[in-house]
Nucleic acid binder design. Structure first.
Lengths: 222, 222
DNA sequence: TGTACATCAGTGAACGCGCGTTCACTGATGTAC
DNA sequence: TGTACATCAGTGAACGCGCGTTCACTGATGTAC
């Protein structure tokens, strides 16, 4: 009973996974907008209507892929962090771990950090997974020197304070601002690399990225 | 003769422009991948095949829109630069001018700085227009203190030297690296703002962006 | 353990739609003598 | 200046295609007694 029920559920879970895997594979060819349920079904040897047993709509499949991608890159960042040792080394490890995942999964990366898909409205489910990389960086900075906050304009200071309260961490506004800049730099560099903007300047971008990671470590006080 | 020929040519130029304008308008609704010649023609009260008098294919229309967008944001950056006065003020003006254009034209921005369009191969025509914003920033930095180059790894140093030679400017590798980081930061911040990644932290991002512009000015030595 | 019933997975046809591109054509605009 | 011809803009029908989603259905898998 329990055993057999588990068997059916397992079959269901496996096919759900296979559908997502095939959809991910097709993202590479056609992008998020071009992702087609019929094509996915065709490739899996099913009839297109059968997919509706697993996903109520194309948008729901897309949402799942997006959440999966955020979790995957977040996990890559977390796993890259040794969790102990010099904060600066942990910082660098997270930067490289994040970039490595992105380079290994460029189309999933584009799905979450590229242009928003028109007509697609991101549901609330994506918010938490989307912040995992940032939180991994925050974790390393805990107990870092709090900078003087003199030069931070009031609006930004207010936003920084709201943020530190929400995260339950102690950090001055300038530290928060610099962390957000570093976070922006990390994904800006990955995007420029993956989307071809460094062609003609620092392509391949490995050395430049490694250098940026170090400079931004110093920038946030590590 | 010359007058009448010019009249026909003017009509042609005007309609070409109207087609591009309508296409731009539709980018907002459907994105680059969803852009449809038929829909554009329909909106202009033409039959779809008539567009082929103006653009040999959908891809060619897209390419023109991309080139136009690069030129528009480049021009915005150049026009924001007062061209004289304190380099730091010029730098800040260019940053804000670039962001202002992007916020005014979010879908054109996404067209050029979002995820690459699958199946679309950017032709050579886009390379020069794509570098205008970066060049505007470079111009401000000319005659800035050259930093010690000790810590720049050899691959990056080589790339930096190739770049300075190609541009005909004098700048040490660390300066070049920092400039590329600032360039990355500028577009990283604009993209994160426009694509919704700052929701939950620094949204609206105006104060944060202004602060980043200043910090990056210092970072490159201004 | 065996049987009657309920649940679920997958089928196949259909609805209604939109797309890029080609092609033979009509009629207007421009050119050459 | 007036006429014959060439060029160009725009039409409308067609080709061949793919899409998301619904629906009535068959057959297999699981459940309750």
């Amino acid at each position: 009973m329990t055993a057999t029920r588990t068997a059916r559920e397992r079959a269901r879970a496996e096919l759900t996974q296979e559908i997502k895997d095939e959809a991910r594979r097709q993202l590479a060819d056609v992008g998020a907008h071009g992702l087609s349920l019929r094509a996915v079904a065709r490739e899996l040897g099913m009839v297109s209507s059968a997919l509706y047993r697993y996903f109520p709509s194309r948008d729901r499949l897309l949402t799942d892929l997006i959440v999966d991608a955020y979790n995957a890159i977040g996990e890559a960042a977390e796993n890259a962090d040794p969790g102990e040792g010099e904060p600066r080394d942990r910082w660098l490890a997270i930067w490289h771990g994040t970039r490595d995942w992105a380079r290994a999964h460029p189309h999933e990366y584009a799905l979450i950090y590229g242009s928003p898909i028109p007509g697609y409205e991101a549901p609330q489910d994506t918010v938490a997974p989307a912040s995992r990389v940032a939180l991994a960086l925050v974790k390393v900075l805990t107990n870092t020197t709090v900078r003087a906050a003199d030069e931070v304009p009031p609006e930004l200071r207010a936003q920084a304070e709201t943020l530190t309260k929400a995260l339950g961490i102690i950090a001055g506004p300038e530290t928060v601002a610099r962390l957000l800049m570093a976070w922006t730099q990390l994904f800006g560099a990955i995007s420029f690399d993956l989307f071809g903007q460094y062609v003609g300047s620092v392509d391949p971008a490995d050395a430049f990225f490694a250098h940026s990671a170090k400079r931004m470590a110093e920038f946030v006080g590590l």
